[in-house]
Write a protein that binds this DNA or RNA. Structure first.
Length: 374
DNA sequence: ATTCCTTTGAAGTAT
DNA sequence: ATACTTCAAAGGAAT
């Protein structure tokens, strides 16, 4: 079993590493906030890249004294900037997430399997912010956009994206750590994420001054409806309800599950050879977070472009406290567990296609693609 | 119709 | 062991 961990129960989760939260992208952000010029930014970038190439620590590129100094300067500012954000808005998620009032049951039954690419998950997903059409009987992640935020993302929650567009940020509080100490459970993980900075910034439309939907759609306690199934009693099965796909079996369970799903979802077009992977990867913590919060961002910013939205969500993700992130890490861990149960023989390798495109050059300018010699 | 963009994290591949 | 790549979601934009 490819995903079966051999070391311990929490290998399913992210590695427990405490990593400082000062990645380069934030530096870029902070730099912009501080009024650094584009040239400064380019200099800093190039110095960082050069250093990271020279040194054998590509993940810790802030070795240049000047870069360190600048990064530290701007980081101080940034800490303050999002502290209010956390205190004001996001921390409320905790309450919402675990409050679990009035769990109405699963409106998701009979819907398609999110792991199946032809399960038409995306047809409705997130376009309807209330309930995501999710797993046929996926008990873990209904993917409804509000189950975490629980309506606590009130309209006053600052949209923390638009330094670039000059959106005002809330007042500052000094005591926000620059890193996310991880919970003792070892669920949380912060990755240093080189791509945070090195990738070109997708143009984000202005969003701070127009929020026509924020008061109605994305907020308000009345908007809390479906507590996440994972928040059910811990004495229950992790899934909350028995999963029909996890059934006692004597035969080839893998193939049975697989074929049943395939029949359900792709029978009409079976003539065409299925080109896409049948079973998709389980979502990681950030993907789960995105699913939850996308609607909020769309509502607050009236954005539709996913690339821009994802940038915002990436920043928000970094602004989350460790507790808030750990919820998603825990969810993701359970997702992987369930996925393993559903598809014991599945491997991410199944969907892995070796691409010839030199995509990496676009994504990571510092990396030069070298064709492998035979 | 397909691919790109953009994000983070998990897992795969390559060295 | 480490570095790098691919894929998960999403939907508008570009091809």
């Amino acid at each position: 079993m490819p995903q079966m961990n051999s070391a311990g129960e929490d290998d399913l989760g992210a590695s427990d590493e405490m990593i400082s939260f000062k990645d380069e992208g934030d530096q870029e952000e902070k730099i912009r906030e501080n009024g650094f010029t584009e040239r400064d930014l380019a200099d800093l970038k190039s110095s960082l890249v050069n250093e990271s190439e020279v040194a054998s620590h590509p993940r810790v590129p802030e070795t240049h004294p000047e870069a360190i100094r600048r990064a530290q300067d701007v980081q101080l500012v940034y800490q303050d900037k999002f502290s209010a954000h956390m205190e004001d808005g996001i921390k409320h998620q905790d309450e919402g997430m675990y409050k679990g009032s009035g769990y109405p049951g699963y409106p998701f039954l009979m819907l398609s399997d999110p792991y199946l690419s032809n399960g038409s998950v995306s047809a409705l997903s997130n376009k309807v912010p209330v309930v995501q059409p999710s797993h046929g009987v996926h008990p873990l992640i209904p993917y409804n956009s509000e189950s975490f935020s629980h309506g606590s993302h009130s309209p006053h929650l600052p949209v923390d994206l638009n330094q670039k567009q000059g959106v005002h940020r809330p007042s500052q509080t000094p005591d926000v750590p620059t890193f996310y100490p991880l919970p003792s459970g070892g669920v949380g993980q912060i990755s240093p994420s080189m791509g945070w900075q090195s990738q070109p910034v997708y143009p984000i439309p202005s969003c701070g001054f127009r929020q026509p939907y924020s008061a109605t759609m994305s907020s308000g306690p009345s908007y809390s409806r479906f507590p996440h199934p994972l928040m059910l009693s811990p004495s229950m099965h992790t899934t909350g309800i028995p999963h029909p796909a996890i059934i006692p079996h004597s035969g080839n369970k893998d193939m049975d599950i697989y074929e049943r799903n395939m029949k359900q979802h792709s029978e009409p077009k079976r003539e065409k050879e299925p080109k896409k992977p049948a079973i998709k990867k389980p979502l990681n913590a950030f993907m789960l977070y995105m699913k939850e919060m996308r609607a909020n961002v769309i509502a607050e910013c009236t954005l539709k472009e996913s690339a821009a939205i994802n940038q915002i969500l990436g920043r928000r993700w970094h602004a989350l406290s460790r507790e808030e992130q750990s919820k998603y890490y825990e969810l993701a861990r359970k997702e992987r567990q369930l996925h393993m149960q559903l598809y014991p023989g599945w491997s991410a390798r199944d969907n892995y296609v070796r691409k010839k495109k030199e995509k990496n050059q676009r994504k990571a300018p510092g990396f030069q693609f070298r064709p492998r010699l035979p």
